[in-house]
Design a protein around this nucleic acid. Structure first.
Lengths: 255, 255
DNA sequence: AAATTTTGTTCGAAATGCTCGAACGTCAAT
DNA sequence: ATTGACGTTCGAGCATTTCGAACAAAATTT
């Protein structure tokens, strides 16, 4: 499963997806700008755009082409496939209300973490994470909680596939260190993140498993480091999360 | 702008998108099932799937290929491009709380209506609409409200492009009837939907325009026909919506 | 307002790279 | 152990994509 080298990819399809990707991050663009960015001929990009437009994946307005809401339809569908979303959602809102912080629900796909849903408490701070955001598991409290529930073998696969890229000086970049951390997490039941992805941002995360012990995702609470520290972080909030995760796990068995 | 006949579409890209579409509606599937559904060779579908998988647009699990959460990333991004979403959201939650019904925010793209966000009140009923759902504008209260703010010329374009397909016996299928309805909506300021998309479901909708009068979307309240009728529908709820839409319009000018 | 530059769009021709079918490997079921 | 169904790989023909150049349309400048 470590093999991600594809024998013969469909280059034409990859080109279309590359255009979508570029439009997502690069705002509205025209054929000329896209062509030079992607190293393609104007006419080629134009043809792709018109095809994508026909299907609603991109739309044309005054400023150029943008990603279309057709993708929201697909995205919401992708999210609804995860039972965790619907079950965890009300619990997350409750936690956000109680703690005043930002509460997330994260799941794993292809060795990466995806933010399924976030509930904002009264005092929650703005972070780079949005719904749909894809992150490296080892950079997230929720992600490390998920990793702690995988067999070592699977964690090795993930490291092989994605590495352990750093986001801040505190990010865990050494496999051995990560495995030690995962042992600690398994022991005490929750994961802690101290400025490992965003400076001055801390978080706690707890895994949510199904009946077989497989991690279907994790929930986390994040906030400013000076508010999420000491006992509040490792006792109060961790306990709150452990209870919530436990409830979610039970509800998952009956849906 | 009525020309949607594309000179030379990129067939290969369209094939990939067709696979995505089929996976969205048809649940997890394997290469063989997809190939026979789409009239393609197994090996062709396989190659497309591997390409899509590499980009995270589909994922493979025990039951077959599914649409991947990478699409949620794109979809959320598409939604965030519409300022209306963020501005209307808190107001929708407020309305849902007040009325107990389901409240939606809809916007237009390519002559179709897209459900940006829905807030559920205590007594809200389950309908086919989800976030991201694409509908015909003439079948929605919010959609008709949007149409009422377009110039007739644009409405004609939309009718030419998409027709006026029926969902129930009450759906408006005649252009003249639609234009009469739009005149009424412009006059009184709100649109009403009586079982035009779902039997026994009624709704009220009010357009939200920008400074130039262009409809950036609409908000609506929907619920069972026996609860949303008479004065409650055309007075109480309509007034509530008109006030909310007005507030949203003002807030849109400062964001 | 004319001219010029930039951008969007169309089209032909060459060759890339996609599609198909057949064969192989793999797994589950009988 | 054997059969069948499914996923995967690979070669070869040719359908399709890609590029570049030319044209049309805007936008920007003089």
């Amino acid at each position: 499963m470590t093999d991600n080298e594809q024998s013969r990819p469909v280059k034409t399809a990859a080109t279309s997806l590359g255009i979508l990707e570029r439009l997502k991050t690069g705002g509205p663009l025209g054929p000329t700008a896209l062509a030079s960015d992607l190293g393609l001929a104007k006419s080629t990009v134009h043809r792709h755009l018109k095809t994508l437009e026909r299907e609603g994946f991109v739309v044309l307005d005054d400023d150029g082409y943008r990603v279309g809401l057709r993708l929201l339809d697909f995205g919401i569908h992708a999210r609804n496939q995860h039972q965790l979303y619907e079950v965890a959602k009300p619990k997350l809102e409750e936690l956000a209300e109680q703690t005043g912080e930002k509460v997330w629900c994260v799941t794993e796909e292809q060795g990466r973490g995806f933010h399924l849903y976030g509930a904002a408490g009264k005092h929650s701070v703005r972070t780079p994470a949005r719904e749909g955001t894809r992150s490296y598991l080892h950079q997230l409290a929720a992600g490390k909680a998920i990793l702690s529930a995988f067999p070592d073998e699977r964690v090795h696969e993930i490291i092989d596939q994605h590495g352990l890229p750093a986001k801040t000086p505190h990010t865990i970049t050494d496999p051995d260190e990560l495995f030690e951390e995962l042992a600690t997490i398994r022991e005490r039941g929750f994961a802690v993140n101290r400025e490992e992805i965003v400076p001055k941002l801390h978080a706690v995360g707890v895994v949510v498993t199904d009946q077989t012990g497989y991690p279907v995702g994790a929930i986390s609470i994040s906030g400013p480091s000076n508010r999420l520290k000491g006992d509040r972080l490792t006792d109060d909030l961790a306990d709150l999360l452990l209870g919530a995760a436990n409830e979610v796990e039970i509800n998952l068995n009956f849906s």
